[in-house]
Design a protein around this nucleic acid. Sequence first.
DNA 1: CAGGGGGGGTGAACGGTGTTAACGGAGGCT
DNA 2: AGCCTCCGTTAACACCGTTCACCCCCCCTG
Lengths: 236, 236
Amino acid sequence: MAREPLTTERIVGTSRGLLVEGGPEAVVVREVARRLGVTAPALYRHVSGRDDLLTLLIAACQDEVADVCQAAVDDCDPQDHDTRLRRATWAFRTWALTNRPEFGLVYGTPIVGYEAPKGGPTVVSGRRFGQLFGALFVDLLRAGRLRTLADDDLDPSLRADLQHAADAMGLPMRPGEVYPFVMGFQRMLGIVSVEVSGHLRWAFADSEAFTRRQLDDLAADLERPGSTPTGPTATT
Amino acid sequence: MAREPLTTERIVGTSRGLLVEGGPEAVVVREVARRLGVTAPALYRHVSGRDDLLTLLIAACQDEVADVCQAAVDDCDPQDHDTRLRRATWAFRTWALTNRPEFGLVYGTPIVGYEAPKGGPTVVSGRRFGQLFGALFVDLLRAGRLRTLADDDLDPSLRADLQHAADAMGLPMRPGEVYPFVMGFQRMLGIVSVEVSGHLRWAFADSEAFTRRQLDDLAADLERPGSTPTGPTATT
DNA sequence: CAGGGGGGGTGAACGGTGTTAACGGAGGCT
DNA sequence: AGCCTCCGTTAACACCGTTCACCCCCCCTG
């Protein structure tokens, strides 16, 4: 009975299964091995330890969410930047909600003692995700649909950080233009994190309507009013 | 050498020490016992297990942050509701940043397999925290300083949830008035979560200026414009 | 004042974990 | 053929949460 070979894909796959079933604590080397019909030390031939396992898992999830968001964007009129942005954020939220454990792993409270290896797979797939939204904002800006700030309106240290961030990501923007990007990213992450973590469970039986409104308001805050009057977005 | 007795306070205290040093994973029954100069089974006389330990720890932290925010509010002109709100949110943010592990435990990704005991200490101290902010909003509302919504402007299911939430907390508000409260809570949590978790590290060397602006903008969004022109708040 | 009970500690043990070390077989290259 | 490298094995170490049986000492009761 020749078992199929022990590829990294299979290891990450069953790790993810464990993650989904029982959270990060449940992704346990020995159990991964067991499910692959193998003993624990065998995994150490392919993966350098539990941390490495988590690194690969995080990167895989980050890649997946980036794919999902990219697909949502590609599925839009290339000129309708407002809708593209809304679809991307909603795709993000939907992925997060249907993949709570994965979202928690990637965007939740960092696992203590776990340090993402510098230049490792997590940072490259993280950058990809950021650049997806970065591109969205650049389009919005070029189309004159982005509500920007005057650079003077920014605290000097904040201005410097924003300039630095833009340069690091290769975004051709000045600080007052990057600000809405970072703010949007921050608020989106916050909205989705809070919904996923359930820290508003006390208020809502069904959080979807609230979150949709929050994300719509966010998009409206980012966009320059006018031309495209956007009602509530219906995007399964 | 009569050791001092093994009180619940001392147990929670050293647990918190462990939490701070190494995150939730590090709060380990055996190590707590070791630090108290005692063996592990001894702790089981005072605490029913690791989950109980975490419950007590979470409740203690929630109580502390509520105290801190309450103190910040009490330290203000009782009539200046705008400032009271700003001070409370800033106190929350500051506590979160100087107590990251504790914040993560309370407001971060929920620990899998851990279920807060219904009606247990965590829910009572959680309610206390919520009511602190609830009271702030009631004051703001009574003073006519809260920007509210028309009930009609809310999705029906959202409206029902909000009414229910208000009733459950004993807030004398209609849905369009509760909405800004929940939204404010949500955004505050999001802003602070994202700063604490460091998921914006790629953008900022120093996140304080950005966060302050976010929290100020949030407060401004919540308040009815006019009467009290609020510049940037300086609140160490 | 004797004695019993119980609160609060002990060591030992069970089954789980991550990780390492020593070993061995199967397949390809020289 | 001989060897080497890949990839698996078993055994072991040190740690974890939790339970068990034990026991000591203090306090309350008769």
